[in-house]
Nucleic acid binder design. Structure first.
Length: 213
DNA sequence: CTAGTGATTCCCT
DNA sequence: GGGAATCACTAGC
């Protein structure tokens, strides 16, 4: 017998904890994205932790800038960045405020609104690919910089919220090096995913990019 | 494997 | 101000 996923919103306290506690605890939770076209609901299967305090891989490592300002604010808010000239990626800020840690949402399974997600992800060859990768996840959920700073724990109207869902047991959580993080930051095994889940993205080690001529 | 895209930041002047 | 390097990626061959 499978338990029905819990549709209760996660309270801010959930995010007001060390990022290495929050990140694995997010697996199996439900991210609800509401737009005028309708809702898309995603079950999280892969995340990465970034700790602004002493983490060279974090966007907050060198201090506060206009881009990363949201990471220095209260937990439970959304940090969205634009990268590689084309893509957006979404993070959830963790506590305590000022520590500027966050969890990158890397992949998930669309459990509701797959039809809508498919219209945003025309190159996906099957539904497992709809949100397999952080920029694909953001595309499937229509997430861009306009949502930067959104409170995912707001009561009432909000374009984005996180529900309790069905947390993944410790025995089904795997962890390993973060994808694509260069240098010293790459050593931390702070990528967390659901064991044997087909929506988890393939691991890619960081490849230094050759300088343009 | 590689090209592509443009915001952001750093490091000068 | 400007130029260069960086970027937690994806699509397509």
């Amino acid at each position: 017998m499978i338990a029905t996923p819990d549709r209760t919103p996660l309270p801010r306290d959930f995010f007001d904890r060390p990022v290495l506690e929050v990140a694995p605890d997010l697996l199996g939770r439900l991210l609800v994205r509401e737009t005028p076209d309708g809702p898309v609901v995603l079950r999280l299967t892969e995340v990465e932790a970034y700790d602004g305090q002493n983490d060279p891989g974090s966007h907050a490592y060198r201090g506060r800038t206009p881009r990363n300002a949201v990471m220095f604010g209260p937990p439970g808010h959304v940090y969205v960045y634009f990268t590689y000239g084309m893509w957006h990626c979404m993070n959830l800020v963790c506590g305590p405020e000022g520590r500027s840690s966050a969890v990158l949402l890397r992949a998930g399974e669309i459990v509701e609104g797959a039809e809508l997600a498919r219209t945003r992800r025309l190159s996906a060859r099957n539904d497992k690919e709809l949100a397999k990768g952080p920029a694909r996840l953001a595309t499937a959920l229509d997430i861009d910089r306009r949502l930067d700073g959104t409170d995912a724990c707001a009561t009432g109207e909000t374009p984005l919220r996180v529900l309790a869902g069905t947390p993944v047991g410790r025995d089904r959580v795997r962890n390993g090096p973060r994808t694509g993080v260069a240098g010293e930051g790459g050593v931390h095994p702070w990528r967390f995913w659901v064991a044997d889940d087909p929506t988890v993205s393939p691991y890619r080690a960081h490849v230094p990019r050759r300088r343009r001529s």
